[in-house]
Design a protein around this nucleic acid. Structure first.
Length: 106
DNA sequence: TGGATGACCTACA
DNA sequence: CTGTAGGCCATCC
């Protein structure tokens, strides 16, 4: 059973361009659940089976908060690095790679 | 059946 | 600046 925001979250994640990342907060805001970014993480976790670039979704600070939920924790960083995204320690440089979803359609 | 939980964020004291 | 609370809702035990 997919809720409205669940579809939106998945759609948005699907639209994240190569070499960019976005945050739970942004997704939540665009989905109209600005006060519940929690649900975003929950949706991802529930749909972890689907082929989506979950590695491009990070928390507000650019930290890989969800790496432990991947089959291989290191995979998340590897994928991002493979897309040309650089890290400071284990934190993405959001100022360079943050992508804002198309909120015009929502 | 119901309470606890979760890849979070913002607001307020 | 630190700590607490609230919001959201399906899933798990």
């Amino acid at each position: 059973m997919q809720k409205d925001f669940e579809k939106k979250v998945l759609d948005i994640v699907r639209q994240i361009p190569y070499g960019k990342v976005t945050t739970y907060g942004e997704i939540a805001r665009v989905c109209g659940i600005s006060s519940s970014a929690r649900m975003v993480g929950w949706v991802l976790s529930r749909n972890a089976d689907i082929d989506l670039p979950f590695h491009r979704v990070v928390n507000r600070f650019g930290a890989l908060s969800g790496k432990h939920h991947f089959e291989t924790p290191s995979l998340m960083k590897e994928l991002l690095l493979g897309e040309g995204i650089t890290f400071q320690n284990d934190t993405v440089e959001l100022s360079k790679y943050l992508w804002h979803p198309d909120d015009e359609n929502y």
